[in-house]
Structure formats: C-alpha cells, structure tokens
Design a protein around this nucleic acid. Structure first.
Lengths: 103, 103
DNA sequence: CGGTTCAATCAGCCAATGCTGACATCAGTT
DNA sequence: AACTGATGTCAGCATTGGCTGATTGAACCG
C-alpha cells in the first residue's frame, strides 16, 4: 500500500497536543513566538522547535518582520487533510456492509 | 486552553502509519484481523494492539462472529475530525491578517 | 475429548521524539 | 560599540509508544 504525506506526515505533525494548540491559536490571527510562549506557558526553545516542524510540513508560513517573526496558518494544508478524512468517512458510510470471507 | 479528545486523542490515534493503513482498508469493507495481517504484513499481535487502540478511541467497532471478529469503521469519528480541520482552515482563510503587537 | 486456528493480553526491548539548557544570531537601541 | 531582547540551533536527557515473543483463551473440527 502506498503511503503519502497526507496519511503519514501531516497527521503526525498535527497530532502533538502543543502543536495542536499552536495551530488553533494561529487560526485566528498571526502571532510571534513570544505570543505563543505567553499563551501556552511553554519555553521559547520548545515553541521554536514546534514551529520549525510545522513550517517544514507546510502547515504554517513565517514572515520575518524586523526583530520579530510572524507566523500564519496555511489553510490549504488543513483543508486538504479535512477532505481526506471526510472522503474516508463518506466511503465507509456509503459502502454496504460487505464482508470478505476468512481464508 | 482547554484540550479535547478531538484535538488530542483522535489525531494521535490516526497519526500512526500502520493505523492509517488499517483505517483506509476498513473504509471499504469489514475485515478480520487475519485479513489485515495478510494485507499489511504486520504480525497478528501488532494488528491486535492497533485495533484495540482504534477501538478505545471510537474509530472502529468490533463484532465477534464465531471464531472471527469483524471490524468496521465508525464514520462519525472521521467525519467529526474532518469538520474540525475544515473549520480551522475556514477560520484561518476568512480572518483578515490581524496582527497582535509584540509587547 | 484432543488438535487446530484465530484473537487478545502481557512484559520487555528499543527507536522516535518531545523537552530542556546552553549557546549563537540578528535587529534595534543608547 | 555595547547592550538588550527576540529567535533559532544544537546536544543530551527522558518519556512515549510501537514492535515482538510467549502465553492464554475461545471457537471450530476431527
């Protein structure tokens, strides 16, 4: 079975609780790491590491602004994953209860 | 910030590559562990462990049938997560580029 | 009954990864 | 330049969690 970034990397990146909180915070507005540190109580180093993971996965994008760096969400990434799960749910819901015989 | 099963447990459960393959396989038809062992190449013990995780998370449900046990997907779980991600994406897409000043 | 097969549980191993402290870098300020 | 504050990077530690072998129980069949 073929694996893809959609079934492997994106879900794994979004599965971490702290990263999920960061994503939710960024859904409302652009934020700097300093804001996220204040909002979550996590250390700056920790936030920076998670932002790097989110960046490499294409979930967020960064825009340096002088001394600060603003991060914003890339809605396409979340929308793509949402469509994937919705498609699975629909396929499972529509499929009649077919059973493959055992051996 | 309040956490929920939707932002913590469900994504974590679906993030594992082997569990993702199981979920995709179950989206098409009901299957027994023996089928999943054959399809994935994983050991029976491993499949059984993952099915237990999926069961406890409400992603699948089991129906014992004599010597076999058929598993099927619960589409509501996937649909709920899909709606969650879609809502985040929509909120991020609609929100004007608001920026909170840095302290 | 045994014997066989499917499935679940358990303890142990180990790789993956989240967290941290220490340090480096850069921008703005005085 | 020197200082401060915001960010990023790196190595090490510690925990999580996936994988396995061994064992057990249950359901079928001779």
């Amino acid at each position: 079975m073929l694996t893809s970034v959609l079934t492997d990397e994106l879900p794994r990146v979004l599965a971490d609780p702290l990263r999920a909180r960061i994503v939710e915070a960024l859904a409302g507005e652009e934020l700097c790491p300093c804001h996220l540190v204040a909002m979550t109580g996590a250390r700056q180093t920790n936030i920076s590491n998670h932002l790097r993971v989110l960046l490499q996965a294409g979930v967020v994008e960064a825009e340096p602004a002088g001394r600060y760096t603003y991060y914003r969400l890339r809605p396409e990434a979340l929308a793509e994953l949402a469509r994937h799960y919705a498609a699975l749910a629909e396929r499972a819901g529509l499929t009649p209860r077919r059973r493959r015989p055992c051996s």
